Computed example of a mutant assay.
Amino acid sequence: MSSAVVTALEHLREGCFQRSLCLIVAATSIASGLEVGYEHYKGSYSNPVMYTPVVLSGALAAAGLSGMLSRLAARTLLRWVSVITLVDGVIGFFFHVRGIARKPGGWGLPVTNIVMGPPIFAPLLFGTSAYLGLMASYLRREEDLDRPAQHLTEWFEPQSSDWRMNLRHGRFQKHLSAVTVLWAFFSGVEALYSHYKTNFRYKAQWTPVLLTPLLMAAGVGAMKSRRIANTALPAVAALALADGAAGFCYHARGIVRRPGGIKKPLYNILYGPPVFAPLLFAACGFLGLVASLLRREKK
């Protein structure tokens, strides 16, 4: 194993990867912002609240970049923008539930109206980047790993189980495994009814649906067993990450194959397969991989 990989793993295990995670937050928030932007464009922004995730995704991307450059920005700006974005995702979830209830038949026709109505879990998945941003705001910087003062602080610190202390020192494996389970469920349901709309035309459309329960089971097992967290979880999470990346390529290909192809990019992106949706499933795999590399919480 190369020294660079060993160093990266050590940073992860010690909770010293704030800069790296801030950069990931910025990139994922841009992708999710573009996704929600054109989905709400289809709805003609009929409700002013539909603008909030678009604005917040830009704010979160800027906060992520600021956090990468500044420790203070990571602990203040990124933290509060992440909290506001998470709250916005919860509010959006209730608006989507209400939108389904207002369709003809309401919840009396649950399958039809969930499939044809607003994507019920999409606002919660939008919060993935915000959750990572909140987590990043409590981590330590990469350069803190080699500071003698940091080692002395950890040596003399009380054996505290406070969640903030656990985050700062990379001890949140069970917590992140639980988050992986939750987000995998949301993403898997979204993939299920999105692909159901096209009658599972391609066999590859079954893969995220089949991988979802496997990833959830591995996440639950990782919460209870260190061995599962170090074996089954990274294996299934890597498959989910690869499947999401492959799904992104399939969706991009689907857009290119529409009438007009790349000559009508905006129209075909709007009405073709959601190009960034598979990356949300890949993000679940990413969470699982990170969880497998962390240390377990102090009891």
Score class of each variant (00 low, 15 high):
F172Q: 06
E142N: 08
K174Q: 14
G108N: 14
L72K: 14
I24E: 02
Q159M: 09
A191H: 15
Y51E: 04
S57M: 03
M68P: 00
R75F: 05
E10A: 15
L65V: 14
S57V: 03
L21A: 07
Y271V: 09
E10N: 13
A136E: 10
F248T: 11
L176R: 01
E35L: 15
S137G: 09
A283P: 02
A178L: 13
L211V: 05
K203S: 13
K299Q: 12
E157C: 07
P208N: 12
G188P: 05
S137A: 13
P158L: 09
V6T: 15
S161I: 04
A101P: 06
N268L: 02
I269G: 02
G108E: 13
N199V: 08
P123S: 08
P110D: 02
E154A: 14
R296A: 11
V87K: 00
G108L: 12
G221S: 04
A61K: 02
V90Y: 01
A240L: 02
A178M: 12
P48Y: 06
M135F: 12
K42R: 14
P213D: 03
A130S: 11
A130V: 08
Y271I: 07
L34F: 15
A218N: 01
V111G: 05
P274V: 05
A282Y: 02
I255V: 15
G254M: 05
Y138F: 14
S20G: 11
F121G: 06
G58I: 01
R168P: 03
P110S: 02
L287E: 07
G260K: 00
L125K: 01
R141L: 04
P118G: 04
M165F: 13
V256T: 09
P119F: 00
D144C: 08
G288K: 08
S82P: 03
A191W: 12
A242C: 12
K298W: 10
L270I: 11
A73G: 04
N230D: 12
S161A: 10
S44Q: 13
R295W: 08
N268E: 01
M223P: 03
R296V: 09
Q159L: 12
A252W: 13
H175T: 13
G92F: 02
R141Y: 02
A237E: 01
T231A: 11
A31V: 13
A252S: 12
K299D: 13
S46M: 10
L9W: 10
L280W: 14
A62Y: 01
Y38M: 00
S160K: 00
V54Q: 05
P213R: 03
M165H: 13
E142W: 07
P208C: 08
T52L: 15
P123Q: 10
G219V: 05
Q205A: 06
R102W: 01
A8G: 10
S57H: 06
L77Y: 09
W206P: 00
V220N: 01
A122I: 05
V90C: 05
Y45G: 03
A8C: 04
